[in-house]
């Protein structure tokens, strides 16, 4: 069972690396930011699987931190970077 968890975690890491394409090439800032948010979600799943497979319950707290605090970056983006898009060249 642990092998399955680890394999899924590895697969999630691969999807995360594939998502890097959107951050590097995403045409608009919103694309880049959403890709980073998706990274956060994937990292949560990855951490939960690792905590189960490696029997380290503390990793669930780290996953909880990511899940909770992801909102802060998203709101900062919307408030500080995105609303001013209308006056971009």
């Amino acid at each position: 069972m642990n092998t399955l968890y680890l394999a899924v975690a590895l697969f999630l890491l691969l999807t995360l690396i594939a998502g890097m394409w959107r951050i590097l090439h995403g045409p608009t800032p919103a694309d880049r930011m959403l890709a980073a948010q998706l990274f956060g979600t994937t990292a949560v799943a990855c951490l939960l699987l690792l905590s189960q497979a490696l029997e380290q319950p503390a990793l669930r707290d780290i996953a909880l931190v990511f899940a909770l605090l992801a909102a802060v970056t998203a709101i900062a983006f919307v408030k500080r970077a995105w609303l001013k898009k209308s006056d971009e060249s």
């Binding site: 951050i23 880049r32 930011m33 980073a36 990292a43 951490l47 380290q56 780290i62």
Partner: peptide, 15 residues
């Protein structure tokens, strides 16, 4: 945005 992604992966690395 790349730095934010870096921070996420860094946390995985520390784990």
């Amino acid at each position: 945005v790349l730095f934010i992604a870096f921070g996420l992966l860094m946390a995985l690395a520390w784990v």
